[in-house]
């Protein structure tokens, strides 16, 4: 399945970074395709994404679940929608005045449009990963 993996730093205190990353609404604001995030409970949320593929406009509703976490160190999550599923991990490492984040996300298309979704994911995942990092840095670095 297509994947994105990156390591980057955020010049911000660990507390601020962690509380941002574990808040689905705030995390969702780092992805331009995400329209809305509804928190269902402390581990699950529903994400509404609008993606465009030429003339095809899809609204994707994905339910995310935090499957494991070590406070201020690691969070592991998965997401399931009718059209795609994902899993990922984010590891945090605190340094002087900054936090190093390493994440890996795997995504895969599902359903009758799975091959198209996989193609879409393959084409966009690197760019969207880069966008996510830039937006996150902007939001957290003062």
């Amino acid at each position: 399945m297509p994947e994105a993996e990156a390591t980057f730093t955020i010049k911000a205190p660990l507390d601020r970074v962690w509380s941002f990353l574990v808040d689905p609404r705030r995390l969702g604001s780092c992805f331009p395709d995400v329209q809305e995030v509804r928190v269902l409970d402390e581990k699950t949320a529903e994400w509404v994404l609008k993606v465009k593929l030429g003339f095809i406009r899809k609204t994707i509703k994905m339910k995310s679940t935090v499957t494991d976490f070590v406070p201020q160190k690691r969070v592991t999550f998965q997401g399931v929608a009718e059209e795609a599923e994902l899993s990922g991990t984010m590891n945090l490492e605190s340094g002087p005045g900054e936090v190093k984040i390493h994440y890996k996300i795997l995504m895969e298309g599902r359903g009758p449009l799975a091959p198209l979704m996989n193609d879409l994911i393959r084409r966009r995942i690197s760019k969207q990963s880069q966008e996510f990092i830039e937006i996150l840095q902007k939001k957290l670095e003062v």
Binding site: G54, I56, R57, P115, L116, D119
Partner: peptide, 29 residues
């Protein structure tokens, strides 16, 4: 824009005609 719509289906296993139609018929283009 058509090409952007069609390309993902070209070099990957084709979706069913039903899936293609049901997606395309949702927009004027």
């Amino acid at each position: 824009q058509c090409l952007e719509t069609i390309l993902p289906g070209m070099y990957n296993p084709p979706p069913t005609l039903g899936a293609i139609v049901s997606e395309l018929e949702q927009s004027p283009d």
